[in-house]
Simulated scan of single mutants.
Amino acid sequence: MFSFDYKEKIRFTKAVYYNFRPIPLPRPFKDGTGGMGKFAPEQGCIELYDDEGACAHLSVGRGFVKDILPLILNGEKKSYNEWRETLYWKTRNSGFQSGQAVQVGMLDLMMLDILAQRAGQPLHRFMGATKDWASAYKGGGSILLEDNELIEDMTRYVEEGYTTVKFKVGSDDMERDLRRVEKVRKAVGNTINIAVDANQKWDVETAFKFSELVKPYHLAWFEEPIHAHDMNGIRRLKDMGISVPIAFGESMRIFYAYETYIEKGVDHLQPSVGRMTRMDDLVRIRDIARENNVRFSSGGRIYLNAIFGCLYNENEPVEYHEPISKPVGEYTLYQPEERNGRFYCQTDISGNPQRMNIEKLEKEGLLESKQIFYVEDK
């Protein structure tokens, strides 16, 4: 089974944390269950230094400062896997679906960044990619949009070169959801793939009813129709004969859950880059999807997602969720280039080139504070 196995040792020496004020979205975003989003989720970002002068950059929450920094700024020097294993098992009592578990994945990603910098390679190439681009689909489609606004967005995505588009369903009015599916299909034509995302809104019976009613519109997939942990509910949907491919994965944090998804009949696995406990799980999930002839794609912020997308095939796309990712992208440096349904990653910068634009955040009053942490030698 695939896994990263890097032997080089890392000693962390310093961290600088930039705490953000809420980054406003141009317009509120809503899905079927998540409430009203008026701000991007980003709370801050960190610069993490090692004793050889490399510096990893990543957007992390304040919990990372509280939970992880005390465990790594201790003067110890460990290999990549030693750090991962030590912290992975320290999260045991919090649970492997917890925020602490995700923080271990964030450190994993920053260590990969540091090792790629040492090797003088862009991160995607360091991890084994043989190409510099990722295929993508484009998602958005807030429930708050009027029908005509939804149509405008979906047709614009197609005009930009995307052959798969996705929008939200799971409003309190299923007839409205069905009407919007019909309108989008008529607007984009029959050669474009349409996917919908219910964000776990419905129970098994309601999800099945919706899937029967949207049959004429030939959906590419139906994302999280029911609770993401309702494994027996997923099995029931399959036993009932649901005809629309069902997709799950963004709510899970570890590889083992995806094995269960396959056993229960999920047609499309969708891990999310920013939510995994181990970064090589993304590739392991890709591989079991291939082995079991199920579809694979990955989600998360596009400027990180595209780096991992370079490890995937043309038919294994990354998601570009425009309504939330694009506003955050306005405050990042060195974004991958978006062109005709693909994202092209930089090849002239070692490590992970994506980072928050601290100068711009400060200029616009969004940088609240800066904290510096140094190693505490034992």
Results as ranks from 00 to 15, higher is better:
Ala134Val: 10
Asp239Gln: 14
Glu182Phe: 14
Glu85Arg: 14
Val169Gln: 13
Glu52Gln: 07
Glu364Ala: 06
Ile242Tyr: 03
Phe29Gly: 05
Phe96Thr: 10
Glu47His: 14
Met252Tyr: 15
Arg355Lys: 15
Arg342Gly: 10
Val196Trp: 08
Ile10Arg: 03
Ile192Val: 14
His124Leu: 05
Gly300Ile: 12
Leu366Gln: 07
Tyr18Cys: 06
Phe248Gly: 07
Met276Ser: 05
Leu237Phe: 08
Leu361Trp: 00
Glu8Lys: 15
Ser251Pro: 00
Gly32Ala: 05
Cys310Trp: 03
Glu76Ile: 01
Ala15Lys: 00
Asp50Trp: 02
Ile226Lys: 13
Ser211His: 06
Tyr331Lys: 04
Leu213Phe: 13
Tyr17Asp: 04
Gly300Asp: 01
Gly37Ser: 09
Asn190Ile: 12
Val169Leu: 13
Tyr6Asp: 09
Pro28His: 12
Tyr80Glu: 00
Tyr320Pro: 00
His57Ala: 05
Met279Cys: 11
Glu316Pro: 10
Leu123Phe: 09
Leu69Glu: 01
Glu223Lys: 13
Tyr374Met: 02
Glu223Thr: 15
Lys38Phe: 15
Glu362Asn: 12
Pro216Trp: 12
Gly341Thr: 00
Arg295Glu: 13
Arg84Asp: 00
Ile262Arg: 06
Val283Trp: 14
Trp133Arg: 07
Ile234Val: 07
Asp5Ile: 01
Pro336Thr: 01
Glu212Gly: 14
Phe12Ser: 00
Tyr137Ala: 06
Phe64Asn: 08
Pro216Gly: 02
Met106Phe: 12
Asn232Ile: 06
Gly37Glu: 13
Glu316Thr: 04
Asp113Ile: 03
Lys66Phe: 12
Ile242Gln: 07
Pro245Gly: 15
Trp89Phe: 09
Thr155Glu: 06
Asn305Glu: 02
Gly233Ile: 02
Asp31Pro: 05
Leu69Pro: 08
Val273Glu: 08
Asp108Ser: 04
Leu367Glu: 13
Pro271Ala: 08
Pro353Asn: 07
Pro323Lys: 15
Asp132Gly: 12
Ser98Val: 11
Glu223Pro: 07
Met36Asp: 03
Gly189Gln: 10
Gly63His: 09
Ile358Thr: 07
Trp202Lys: 06
Tyr80Lys: 08
Ala119Leu: 06
Lys326Cys: 05
Leu178Ser: 05
Ala207Asn: 05
Val65Arg: 09
Arg278Gly: 00
Tyr217Leu: 06
Gly233Phe: 11
Ser59Gly: 03
Glu362Trp: 12
Phe308Leu: 15
Ile234Met: 14
Asp177Met: 04
Pro28Tyr: 08
Gln97Pro: 00
Ala56Cys: 05
Leu145Asp: 02
Val318Gln: 03
Gly170Ser: 06
Leu73Ala: 03
Ile288Cys: 11
Pro216Gln: 08
Arg235Ile: 00
Ile349Tyr: 08
Asn232Val: 09
Gly241Asn: 05
Met1Trp: 14
Tyr137His: 10
Pro336Tyr: 07
His229Met: 13
Asp173His: 12
Asp172Ser: 13
Arg278Thr: 01
Ile302Trp: 10
Phe167Gly: 04
Gly365Cys: 03
Leu25Asn: 08
Tyr80His: 11
Ile372Met: 14
Asn199Ala: 08
Arg179Thr: 11
Cys55Lys: 06
Pro317Arg: 04
Asp108Asn: 10
Met276Asn: 11
Arg62Asn: 15
Tyr303Glu: 07
Ala195Val: 02
Ile324Thr: 14
Arg284Trp: 05
Asp31Glu: 05
Tyr49Gly: 05
Tyr312Leu: 10
Lys186Ile: 04
